[in-house]
Write a protein that binds this DNA or RNA. Structure first.
Lengths: 221, 221
DNA sequence: CGATTATATGGATCGCTGTTCCGCTTCTCA
DNA sequence: TGAGAAGCGGAACAGCGATCCATATAATCG
């Protein structure tokens, strides 16, 4: 009992190569097959455990959920914080990668709206981590930069398309909007869950209010 | 070596009475003299250790600096977080209590300015604690309320006096200003230390810009 | 295919933490 | 001054992150 191994969810994340100390582009051997399986299982288990028990959950608990020993955890993630940041980057990637998918599937305005809700869900599950980010622990210093590196272009292209289509105003900075939505999510912690959703809807309506005609319209003219 | 007891600094904080479980105004016996000394020494040591080693410093280190055993720490502060919050409240009190002193010593506008710098110093030393505050740990839930309870009236009366004297605009909310200064302090972490000071000066100049004539002037007329 | 070797594993173990417990000391007050 | 209450110190406990190494296993080669 209490040993049901959490299997890696979907794509295998190809952590296959690690940078050797010899240089940024040293050949670096691929992971052994079982090791790769364990890395995937660990990331999946960590994500699940962090979601239920918070980011301070003990390493032993994550190891048990992944069906491995703690030694295996520390082989792949030398510090506890490395596991935390790896999960964080994975989820940032997953969220950012949805932007082009939505852009291909919906018209610009709706794609933007849907992605913002997706982003809000992402933020909602990161309360404990946000505190860790600002705790001054140098282990998390690189995360804000990664956050911006992935999210600014992802949201930026959605904004650009919507603005070009004349659906929203054109003078909008991606990081400003990301910050605004994040604040909405964090400040409405205990409220009814749909409150955040309505606040975001309000924000989006605000973006649409001063929409101009298409500024860079091209093509069918 | 390494055992120089940190003596309590100044006033003895009169923690002399503890609320008994019987009710909010049960008589509750006073602390024994040596116990009161130890409480003061612990608060002084904790303040010093938190300042140098951060709020995550081990309890044993604080106990050693206070020249007491860990048992004594836990007798007066059943949980580690109780010690943290006690130090925090003490420092909030010290900062808030300076407002009427400055108000008596300087003209309204300068008293306000001087207190804001004092408040900025307070915030600057609270980086680690701010993270703890937003970590979701229920042990710190009551602190924001205490923060507002003490600081809003303290700054509020300074603002009121300065506005009545026509030195600053009159439509200023104390909490807004506290928040603004705190943000200035936290966002300029690694900058040159006088940067924060200049930003606050700018903020104060902004307050003065739209100053009106005295609104409630009374007396020598 | 079997042997060989680099690689990966797991859990006992270490050092450090917050917290508890209790024999002993110290203060208080009649 | 002499009980007796109040307080004290530090050994001990449980849980944590992190380390280590004898063992097990995947990859490689003859």
């Amino acid at each position: 009992m209490g040993r049901e191994r959490i299997e890696p969810g979907g794509q295998s994340a190809t952590v296959g190569r690690l940078e050797a100390a010899g240089g940024p582009d040293a050949p670096a051997r691929p992971l052994r097959a079982d090791a790769q399986r364990n890395v995937d299982a660990l990331l999946a288990a960590a994500k699940a455990v962090f979601a239920t028990s918070g980011v301070n959950a003990p390493v032993r608990e994550i190891a048990a959920n992944a069906g491995v020993g703690v030694g295996t955890v520390y082989r792949h993630f030398p510090r506890r914080s490395d596991l935390v940041t790896a999960v964080f980057r994975r989820e940032v990637d997953a969220c950012a990668d949805e932007a082009p998918v939505l852009a291909a599937e919906y018209e610009p305005s709706e794609a933007l709206e849907r992605w913002l809700y997706r982003y809000a869900d992402f933020i909602a599950t990161k309360r404990g981590l946000a505190a860790a980010l600002h705790s001054g622990d140098p282990a998390f210093d690189a995360l804000p930069a990664y956050f911006e590196k992935r999210f600014r272009p992802a949201l930026g292209s959605l904004i650009e398309s919507a603005a070009a289509a004349g659906a929203i105003r054109g003078d909008l900075d991606a990081m400003d909007l990301l910050q605004a939505v994040a604040n909405l999510c964090l400040h409405t912690a205990g409220e009814r869950p749909d409150h955040t959703r309505r606040m975001i809807a309000l924000l989006i309506d605000g973006l649409r209010y001063r929409a101009s005609a298409p500024q860079h319209a091209r093509g069918n003219w």
